[in-house]
């Protein structure tokens, strides 16, 4: 499914969605950035509660299709612009990382 389909299907909030048509295939959960860079794969959805400028950089460099911020976490306005500039999709949800992984597991 695409990032837009994912967002619509589960009713996630849109923080930044410069590339809605990217394909989501599998996922990774983690907040330690080097684990994410070592383990996450291109086109996955990355579920995290880490929301700073490094989150956007890591998402961009590791080619995940979208970041999904859990637990009601969001991005500063300036970072929203950075995400848009770097073509990084960022969605958000109030659910926990555990609930989100359980929800998305069968779908992507």
């Amino acid at each position: 499914m695409t990032v837009r389909e994912l967002q619509e299907t589960f009713g996630f909030g849109v923080v930044a969605m410069p590339q809605p048509d990217r394909t989501v295939s599998g996922g990774y959960v983690g907040d330690l950035l080097s684990w994410v860079m070592g383990r996450a794969q291109a086109d996955q959805v990355w579920i995290t509660i880490m929301s700073n400028v490094n989150t956007v950089a890591v998402a961009s460099l590791s080619d995940v299709s979208t970041v999904l911020l859990a637990e009601g976490v969001t991005l500063d306005e300036e970072l929203v612009r950075t995400a848009e500039e770097k073509s990084v999709n960022v969605l958000c949800s109030d659910l926990s990382a555990f609930r989100l992984a359980a929800l998305l597991g069968p779908a992507v």
């Binding site: 907040d31 330690l32 950035l33 080097s34 684990w35 860079m37 070592g38 880490m50 700073n52 490094n54 989150t55 890591v58």
Partner: peptide, 12 residues
């Protein structure tokens, strides 16, 4: 606190 320090950088 910024998400670094897992000790995975050089291995990566």
């Amino acid at each position: 606190s910024l998400g670094f320090g897992a000790g995975m950088g050089l291995p990566n």
